[in-house]
Computed example of a mutant assay.
Amino acid sequence: MGLLWQVVRFESRRMMRNFAPVFFALAFPVLMLCMFGGIYGNEPSSRLDGRGTVDMSVPAYLVLVIAVTGLMSFPLGLAEYRDRKVLKRFRATPLGASALLIAQGLVNIALSLLGAVLLVATGWLFFDLHLPDSAGAAVATAGSLVLVTLVMYAIGGVVAAVAPSERSATAVANLLYFPMIFLSGATIPLQIFPSTMKAISDAVPATYAVKLLQHAWLDSATNVALDVGVLAGLLALAAAAAVRLFRWE
């Protein structure tokens, strides 16, 4: 356990030197919230089904935070280590290469949690964010976050598994990440999408994550069974594919 903790500490220091995931997980969602919260405030809007911009944005931005680490940082870290033969060398140590996977997962999830706390705290302190109004809503939100996190990391695992090199992993991760966050409602509210864009968003997995989190947080209208079913099915498929296809070297 002591050796694993040392690997986690090393990965933490390494993460803090990596500008992109730290910025997009910690600063970018907060900047988005400050920009749109400063423009629109949190007054109820008919365009957002009677809810405030900040109230609708924070649950959606949580998907943005998770996607940064799950789709970008986690798989790119694994691809880099495989490309540089680090995973191969670790397989000869008492810890084994799986220690790096565990450490990478723990550090990235910790970064997501910190990003989520900063986002919620900013909304609550400066923009009158309404928190989940019951213990049941808080539990539903936490459960939804766990499911969304597992899905994003499973997809990231597939990226790390199929990409033949660090460079190709970066290209694949970018092709997944940016369309997903801009077409799912994670940055721009789905309620203001034109009908054609809404139809496109139905094909984006993160759309169901956004809808599920907004429902859990705000009790907004959605088809919960569909959202959970899509996410759970995607989790099962992606996890199975990642385990089957992942190469240590």
Rank of each mutant, 00 (worst) to 15 (best):
L95N: 00
D219T: 14
Q214Y: 03
L101K: 03
D219F: 13
R17C: 08
V65M: 02
A97D: 10
P44W: 14
L3Q: 15
R244S: 13
P21I: 01
T122E: 04
R89I: 06
V68Q: 11
S45F: 13
L33F: 00
A116M: 14
L4F: 00
K88R: 14
L106T: 11
P21N: 02
L87I: 05
S45G: 12
V54R: 05
S73E: 10
A169P: 00
Y40R: 14
M1H: 14
L3K: 15
A206Q: 13
L145S: 02
G38N: 09
V210W: 05
A20P: 05
L111C: 08
S165T: 11
I66F: 12
V107F: 00
F28R: 03
A142H: 03
I181P: 00
M72H: 13
G123M: 08
G105L: 12
C34G: 11
G185L: 10
E249Y: 05
N223C: 06
A236D: 06
A232L: 14
F10P: 05
T149Q: 01
T53Q: 15
T187W: 13
V158C: 02
A242F: 07
T207L: 08
L114F: 15
I109T: 01
V8R: 11
I155S: 10
I155M: 12
A171M: 12
F126I: 00
A138W: 15
L113Y: 04
P75L: 07
M15L: 15
G233W: 15
G70L: 09
F24D: 04
L76T: 10
A173F: 11
L218F: 01
G50W: 07
S201E: 01
A242S: 12
S112M: 13
P94E: 05
I192T: 04
P29F: 05
A25V: 10
I188Q: 08
T141M: 12
D133H: 09
R9S: 05
E166P: 02
W217K: 11
L119S: 05
V146W: 08
H215V: 09
A206F: 12
D202R: 15
V63E: 13
G233C: 15
P29H: 08
G50P: 01
A199S: 09
L113F: 07
L4E: 00
F126S: 02
G229P: 01
I188R: 09
V58D: 02
A140S: 07
A142G: 04
N108Q: 05
L183S: 07
P194G: 05
S165W: 09
V54T: 01
L226N: 06
G123Q: 07
I109D: 02
A242Y: 08
L213Q: 03
T196M: 07
L147G: 07
V120D: 03
A121D: 04
G70N: 04
P29S: 07
R84H: 10
T207Q: 08
R82N: 04
V117A: 13
M72V: 13
A216S: 00
D55H: 05
M32W: 10
A232Y: 11
W248T: 01
F182H: 03
L111W: 13
F28S: 06
A99L: 05
R47L: 14
L235R: 13
A186F: 03
P132L: 12
M16Y: 15
R9K: 12
M56H: 09
